[in-house]
């Protein structure tokens, strides 16, 4: 099964597991599957419209899914998906 790497600050919603296995065929469906398994993650990952939140980047291996097919990007049996929170700020 494909795996999603959970960023450290969101592991409090996955019982401290660094990775979660998913069964769906696309990135978008996998993120929704993850949010259903671990409901505390939902508000961090998915917006009111059901889209992936703008503050979150999703990488398939080393590639931002924005440079692939976005949420429709297909995943393989051994894919590693990373959730990356935007880290920014200032005065």
């Amino acid at each position: 099964m494909a795996k999603i790497l959970i960023p450290t600050p969101l592991r409090k919603f996955t019982e401290n597991n660094a990775t979660v296995e998913v069964t769906k065929n696309t990135i978008g469906d996998s993120i929704h599957e993850l949010a259903e398994k671990h409901p505390g993650l939902k508000k961090h990952l998915i917006d009111e419209k059901g889209d992936i939140r703008s503050f979150i980047r999703i990488y398939l291996g080393d590639d931002d899914i924005k440079s692939l097919d976005g949420p429709s990007t297909r995943i393989e049996e051994n894919s590693l998906i990373s959730i990356i929170p935007a880290i920014a700020g200032g005065m």
Binding site: R11, P85, A88, G90
Partner: peptide, 23 residues
Amino acid sequence: YHTHPNHPAIPSIHDLKQAMPVF
């Protein structure tokens, strides 16, 4: 960690908007 040049070490509203839990 980050710096606030010539400003106090108090987070701004910009810092709050994108802050993550636990960190």
